[in-house]
Simulated assay, not measured.
Amino acid sequence: MRLNRVLLATTLVVVALVVQVSVLARLHLPGAVPDLLLLTVLGLAMVYGHTSGALVGFGAGLLADLAPPADHAAGRYALVLSVIGYAAGLIKPETGRLKSATAPMLVVVASALGSTLLYAGVGALVGDTTARHVGLGGLLFSAALYDLLLAPFVVPAVMFLARRADNDPLAEASSASKAADISSGWLSSGTGLRIGGQRGSGLKMKAAKRSAARTGRIKGVKRL
C-alpha cells in the first residue's frame, strides 16, 4: 500500500474504533452493536481493492482485538475483517466509482451477516458459546439493521476521502508543471541555438523543408 493510503486508513480506523468503543457500545441497544469499524473497512476496500481491503481489515480487526474492553481471543476479529475486506474489494470497478448505491448497500447487509456468522463460527471453534446464549437470529437481524442505517452516513464519506487521497491534486499539479518545464526545455533546445538571426532562420527553414519531405513520404506510404 502507498503511504497516503496507509496514513488515511490508519486515521479512519482509529477514529472509528474510538467512536465505536466510547459511544456506540454505550448506547445499550438491543442485540448487536453498530459496527462502525466494519463500515470503515468496507468503504476503503471498495476503493482500494481486495488486496488492500484485506490488509486494512486485518489491521483494523487486530486493533479491535487488542483495544480494551476486548473480551475475546486476539486475532479473532482480525480474521473476520480481513475476509470481509477482501470480499468487499472484489466489487471495486475499474474507475473506482460505483454507479449506484444498490451494490454498496447489498455489500453492507452481506458483510454484517457474514461478519456475525464468521465471528460466531470462529468463537465456537475456540470454545466461545456466547452467541448461542444471546441468540444468533437476533444478532444477525440487529447487526444488519444497525449497519444498514449507519452505512449511508459512513461509507460514502470514507469512499470520498479514499478517492481524494488517491487522486492527490497537489501531486498531479506538480507533476504537470514538471512535465511542462521538461517539454519546453526540450523544444527550446532544438530550435536553433541562437547563433544569429539569419543563421537561425536559415536552420529553421531547412528543418521545415526536411519535415515536409518526411511528411510527404509518410503519407505516400500510408496511401499505398
Rank of each mutant, 00 (worst) to 15 (best):
P93W: 14
T215S: 15
E172H: 10
T95P: 00
G137H: 13
R5W: 12
L98S: 04
A120Y: 03
P69R: 01
L117I: 09
A144E: 00
A70M: 09
S201C: 09
R194V: 12
G89T: 02
V23W: 08
L140P: 11
A70L: 09
V13E: 02
G185T: 14
L55S: 08
F141L: 15
P30N: 02
D168I: 15
V107W: 08
A179G: 02
L79T: 12
S183W: 08
A120K: 01
L187D: 01
S52I: 08
L17T: 04
R199S: 14
L62A: 01
A120R: 01
L42S: 02
M159Y: 03
L106G: 06
N4F: 09
G31Y: 08
A131Y: 14
K204F: 03
A54K: 00
A70D: 12
G196L: 00
G190T: 07
A162C: 02
L98V: 05
G197K: 04
Q20D: 05
Y48R: 09
H133W: 02
G61A: 10
G197W: 01
V221P: 00
D71C: 09
L113Y: 03
N4S: 14
L44P: 02
L8F: 03
G135P: 09
L37P: 01
I182E: 06
T11I: 13
A73C: 09
L38H: 02
A176D: 04
G121L: 07
L63N: 02
D168G: 09
F141A: 15
G75V: 09
L37E: 00
L170H: 13
L161F: 15
G61C: 10
E94N: 10
S52N: 14
L187S: 05
T51M: 13
L17Q: 07
L149V: 08
V155G: 09
G185I: 06
R199K: 05
A74C: 08
F153N: 06
T40M: 06
A144P: 06
L161Y: 13
L170P: 01
M1C: 04
M105D: 06
T129L: 14
A25N: 05
T51H: 08
V6R: 11
V83R: 06
V18A: 13
L44E: 01
A103P: 00
F153P: 03
A173Q: 12
S175W: 05
Y86K: 04
T51V: 14
R214T: 00
A144H: 00
G135C: 12
K178R: 15
P69E: 06
S175T: 11
K222T: 12
E94Y: 07
L7R: 04
L170Q: 15
S82F: 03
L118I: 02
G59S: 08
G202T: 05
L12E: 03
V158N: 07
L149I: 10
P93G: 05
L29T: 13
A165W: 10
P30T: 05
G192R: 11
K206A: 10
M1Y: 02
Y48P: 01
L63P: 02
L55H: 00
S100Y: 02
S174W: 12
V6I: 15
G192V: 12
L55Y: 03
L148G: 09
G114E: 13
V21K: 01
